[in-house]
């Protein structure tokens, strides 16, 4: 899979700093699971965190702190929390591990709900600001025309869409904000399946999706 659309530095740094809401973190983690370029870029931002930690003012530990930690280590070892030495079994399937955790399995476990026009969605449960959902769009169907408020991330898992300017295929991520006005249309072929997070309700411009909006919960 050749990935052409990547995460922004801002998103990577915010994720590295631990400041992204859960809904966005899930999309970022899903993208990085399949993109070594962004994995390496994230690691370089983590290295900045390592440098900040190193140069941070030290706060003296309480007396007996090391002994207390060793005691904790020994008690955990007895409980069998010790390291599994083998590498985890490779998993195949459409969804990378972080997404599988939220769905409770792979594509066959998704609880789709029809939202009109042949489009189906499944909202995933997250805490905090923003929301994240899986979208399944049949070939040739447009994702309802919308303008954005705030940030929207769309990770392609299967199939592809065109937004009028660019093609987004498997592994690609579309990072959109207020300035983006696009009409993504699913390409011919298998259904386009995306993971999409937004931190603001979508404003639909055409009539039908506006009626559908309460049902979409977006």
């Amino acid at each position: 899979m050749t990935i052409r659309h990547h995460l922004t530095d801002q998103l990577l740094m915010a994720y590295s700093a631990g400041e992204l809401p859960e809904a966005f973190s899930l999309v970022v983690a899903t993208h990085i699971s399949r993109c070594d370029e962004c994995r390496a870029r994230l690691a370089s931002f983590d290295a900045v965190g390592g440098a900040v930690l190193t140069q941070c003012d030290a706060a003296p530990m309480a007396s007996g702190s090391l002994a207390a930690t060793m005691a904790m280590i020994r008690s955990r070892a007895i409980e069998g929390v010790g390291p599994p030495r083998e590498r985890p079994a490779p998993v195949s399937g459409l969804f990378p591990a972080p997404l599988r955790d939220y769905v409770g399995g792979d594509l066959d476990r998704v609880q789709w709900r029809a939202v009109g026009g042949g489009v189906r969605q499944a909202i995933l449960r997250t805490e905090g600001p923003g929301s994240v959902r899986l979208l399944r769009i049949p070939a040739g169907v447009a994702v309802p025309d919308h303008g954005h408020r705030g940030l929207e991330l769309t990770q392609v898992l299967q199939g592809a869409f065109h937004d009028g300017e660019d093609r987004f295929g498997p592994g690609d991520i579309d990072v959109a904000d207020e300035s983006t006005h696009h009409t993504p249309v699913a390409e011919d072929g298998p259904d386009c399946i995306c993971l999409a997070a937004t931190d603001a309700p979508l404003r639909f411009r055409s009539l039908l999706p506006r009626i559908a909006q309460p049902f979409l919960r977006i």
């Binding site: 973190s25 699971s33 990378p96």
Partner: peptide, 14 residues
């Protein structure tokens, strides 16, 4: 809060 992490690469002693 919960933090989704990227899939592990399966790093192992091998």
């Amino acid at each position: 809060q919960r933090r989704p992490e990227p899939e592990d690469l399966g790093w192992g002693p091998e």
